[in-house]
Design a protein around this nucleic acid. Structure first.
Lengths: 336, 336
DNA sequence: GCCGATTGTGATAACGCTCTCAGTAATCAG
DNA sequence: CTGATTACTGAGAGCGTTATCACAATCGGC
């Protein structure tokens, strides 16, 4: 690999001068500048960012840890982060932790060793000490989508409660009283929050929740399929079903289809997290749209702000509002 | 940030000994090892991977450049790459080039400056010189999904032609003669290849392609919507439509739905790239399933092989077979 | 009691760059 | 013509590791 020393030699100047000419800082005569540039391109010189990081104390790299990039929601978040951060010259290291605290911890350690300038993480809820370590080591951390109460770090969140409430109230408004839920795992922040909001919404309408209609899934498509099957096997079924994330909604819809259940007549369905394909379903799916891409951009902006103003101020939380997109899977809508 | 020098000082040994104790190489007495370990954890020491890379000449980091991580296909590819590569201790830097040669070039440069150990790229078709530069600089490059003929680098590809042929032959077998296509941009490898394979398949069946039924889209959902609209406006319409990627299929299906076209009766549809939600559509969508995740794992393995055996052998190409998943959107299928 | 091997230790030189500092030559004010 | 300023240059320190040496201490074999 060709170094700045080689460039300097070919250009007939010292390393220092070559560095100044290439880096565009300090003095360098026109002729020196030109000879160095010519030498650099002749040798196909590419500055070593590693060596530069060594001195500058910054890597222009950010860590991003999400649970699963193959989930369209997180893919959108990641995309949002990247778009914002790119303009400031940062690259991102992407990690999929699969909601596994061990894997997450491993990644946090790696990320830290690589001396990223900052970290955006969707915490699984496991050990928070490592993240605290990052913060006290001067590496800003921003939480996305979920947040850990005990961590004094910025967060970009979705108002899950408002989204769930809108969905459930929509069902109630359409006359549903028997409402079931396929929720996420309790150990996950979003899993808990959406379930609690669901129960809250029922309570508010003076509807007593039926335990048999509350099923805890894993946020994976397969579990949506399974849980929907369980609900269908009940003698007394709910008339409406709220599914707490995108993947489980696919599974649930598939099961309902396989069992020949008419939507919304025999079972109304609302999903959490709207997807591109929701309007092409028959009937089009009513869903709570989460602004995933925007969430990523906000998280990135929070991080950039921290990076600009060294360790300034108390943790900040930005909450984005989801939007209930009413289509026809609950009985409402234009062509219902 | 605490360095190995601080650890050494606290443990009462030299830097060299501390490094040996921590790194587990060379000699270090039991007592030294223990004192160093204690000092390290007391100080919350995290080794500086940047400094290590400086010496070792490797960063344990790989570059991944795709067109858009928000596209589920690429998200799956990225996920596949990461899963394989993680086991070998590599982290990945993710870049979205948006099929933009300028952006891609910028990323390749950044990636190179960061001295990644290797690069997996889905090339947009723009300048290939930079990639050649990487290769001649000793940094292995693996192409994924697309490939550039003029680049002597490994590639992991999908057999687009076979996939398209299977889709078109399926339509023909069901009696369709008037078949349209919403293709991808000609400047992209996959765009060209799928269109050519489409024309080939028609030719093989002695069907003369109708130019009005050949529409070039952008591989984005919106263009699927637009192009489907154009087809519907024709006086003489095709009876079947092949859509060359996942996003455009969503757009096209939406348009067909909005215009009240019955699938498959008024228009049969086959999509390229199967998606989780394809079976929940009404009717379930027939599509060519691309093994995106597997493609990522294969690309990663090719890269790891290059990294293990220094610059060994001629470029290798692995071609994965797609699979036509027959459902009911073309008129075939169990419940057609 | 000496030799060679084994075990343990600490200086110190890299890695490739940036940045400070000293020094030279040229320019300019007085 | 002197002293100060400006324009430019190169030597060299240092970022935090690893790797190479030289050297000290211990030990077994004769």
């Amino acid at each position: 690999m060709v170094t700045i020393r080689d460039v300097a030699r070919l250009a007939g100047v010292s390393m220092a001068t070559a560095a100044r000419a290439l880096g565009g800082y300090g003095y360098a005569s026109e002729s020196a500048r030109e000879r160095v540039a010519r030498a650099a391109s002749a040798l196909d010189y590419h500055p070593n960012a590693i060596a530069r990081s060594m001195i500058k104390g910054r890597t222009n790299t950010l860590g991003v840890i999400v649970s699963d990039n193959a989930n369209p929601f997180f893919a959108a978040v990641v995309r949002g982060i990247e778009d914002v951060v790119l303009a400031q010259g940062y690259a991102i290291i992407l990690c999929n932790a699969d909601e596994d605290p061990t894997k997450e911890a491993m990644y946090v350690r790696t990320i830290r060793q690589k001396r990223v300038d900052g970290l955006i993480i969707s915490p699984s809820g496991g050990g928070v000490e490592l993240l605290r370590g990052l913060l006290s080591g001067g590496i800003p951390v921003v939480q996305v989508d979920r947040h850990h109460g005990g961590l004094k770090a910025d967060a970009a969140l979705i108002d899950n409660r408002a989204g769930v409430r809108a969905a459930v109230e929509h069902l109630i408004r359409l006359g549903h009283r028997r409402i079931g839920i396929i929720s996420g795992p309790r150990r996950l922040f979003t899993g808990r929050e959406r379930l609690e909001a669901f129960l809250d919404a029922l309570r508010r309408a003076r509807i007593r929740p039926n335990e048999r209609w509350i099923l805890e899934g894993t946020f994976k498509a397969h579990s949506g399929y399974e849980m929907a099957g369980q609900i269908l096997r009940l003698r007394r079924r709910p008339s409406a079903l709220f599914v707490a994330n995108n993947l489980m909604t696919i599974g649930a819809l598939l099961r309902l289809k396989e069992e020949g259940i008419a939507i919304p007549k025999e079972m109304a369905v609302v999903g959490f997290d709207d997807m591109d394909w929701a309007p092409v379903l028959t009937p089009p799916l009513t869903a709570v749209a989460q602004p995933g891409y925007a969430l990523g951009t906000v998280a990135a902006q929070l991080l950039l702000r921290r990076l600009a103003a060294q360790r300034g101020g108390p943790p900040q939380t930005v909450v984005l509002q989801p939007q209930l997109v009413v289509r026809e899977s609950c009985g409402a809508g234009a062509r219902a």
